[in-house]
């Protein structure tokens, strides 16, 4: 492309110098090439900006967290003592808490999101689908603190008085992991609230993918004597796997970094959950709770920035792995797939 643009331009210049060219045409060509190039440069500028911003964020995180990295090394990742008063910092507790909240959120939201996406794309009458879609988009825009308030006023009492005792009395009889002390606040409440938050995100992307499944593919299924349910589940859903995986990655990114809603319901206790009813702590809610205080001590602040850096790297790794997984799922044959992301 570069060559295509440059060579004729050089040629016209040569002609202009020898006086053989028609001036009007030369100038308009030059102008077009220039504006084209200018447009290219401005786009390039955008790309460079993103790259620069990312590098700066990464660099600053590295510099700011260096005291902690230098002092604790990799043991930061697998030790669980976090005691600012004694100057000892280990991230394990917060990593585990983040893992649980994200895991529960995805476990809950993925089936719900897929079912609502299917409902919207294939089952709801048009008017209802329009209303529900609008509501869902609004839901996606609700500030997370509102979800947190919903969590405190609705989910916590519900979990404490009904669902958590129920879990303890049923699954808890068999697995200790479900046999905790009902408290309402905790990783379960946080996971559910975050799960609700990412349902609209995952459902919207999945619905859009479903709506883009070629009509011919659907007809092929019907023509083979498939019912609607068979067509929707075995053909359409299968065709939107890339789009769905993309939406899961988006949802993961949102869940792993969610702060306010989690902070309000997780119980903010730096201990590793032993049961699903236990309280816990996530990286982002720790930062929100204590970062303004941590600045008082350089090592404390460095440890918290290092947590932020870890969060950044987790998101990065999951995104990359997600892309790899997609490539493998599709075996590089993305032709005809829908909403690959």
């Amino acid at each position: 492309m570069e060559v295509d643009n440059v060579v004729p331009l050089e040629g016209t210049k040569e002609k202009a110098r020898t006086g053989n060219a028609r001036p009007g045409r030369v100038s308009s060509n030059t102008f077009l090439s220039r504006s084209d190039r200018f447009f290219g440069w401005s786009l390039q500028g955008g790309g460079v900006f993103i790259l620069g911003l990312f590098s700066i964020v990464l660099l600053i995180c590295l510099i700011e967290s260096w005291p902690s990295i230098a002092k604790f090394g990799f043991s930061f990742l697998w030790t669980s003592t976090w005691n600012p008063a004694h100057g000892v910092f280990g991230a394990l507790t917060y990593l585990v808490g983040t893992f649980w909240v994200t895991g529960i959120a995805l476990f809950i939201s993925i089936p719900v999101a897929i079912f609502s996406a299917l409902f919207l794309s294939d089952y709801a009458p048009k008017w209802l689908s329009g209303i529900v879609s609008t509501l869902m988009e609004m839901l996606a825009g609700i500030p997370s603190i509102v979800f947190g308030a919903f969590g405190i006023t609705f989910m916590v009492p519900l979990l404490r008085d009904h669902f958590e005792p129920f879990l303890a009395n049923t699954l808890g009889k068999k697995w200790d992991f479900f046999n905790g002390d009902p408290m309402g606040y905790g990783i379960l409440a946080a996971g559910i609230v975050v799960g609700f938050m990412i349902v609209p995100l995952v459902a919207t992307v999945t619905r859009d993918s479903l709506l883009m499944v070629p009509h011919e593919m659907v007809e092929a299924s019907y023509a083979l004597g498939a019912t609607k349910a068979e067509t929707v589940f075995f053909v359409k859903l299968k065709a939107v796997v890339p789009g769905m995986v993309g939406s899961f990655i988006l949802g993961f990114g949102r869940a792993v970094g969610e702060t306010m809603a989690v902070l309000l319901v997780i119980g903010n206790q730096a201990s590793i959950p032993q049961t699903i009813q236990d309280v816990g702590y996530t990286i982002s809610s720790l930062l929100a709770n204590t970062f303004t205080y941590a600045v008082i001590d350089p090592l404390y602040a460095a440890a918290e920035v290092e947590l932020g850096l870890i969060l950044l790297l987790i998101t990065l790794v999951v995104n990359t792995l997600g892309r790899r997984l997609l490539m493998r799922l599709m075996g590089g044959r993305l032709a005809g797939s829908v909403g690959g992301g």
């Binding site: 011919e216 092929a220 023509a223 065709a239």
Partner: peptide, 16 residues
Amino acid sequence: LRRRVGMVFQKPNPFH
């Protein structure tokens, strides 16, 4: 009916 009367379409439309 559609199991007894099969159909092939204009454009190839295999499943994923």
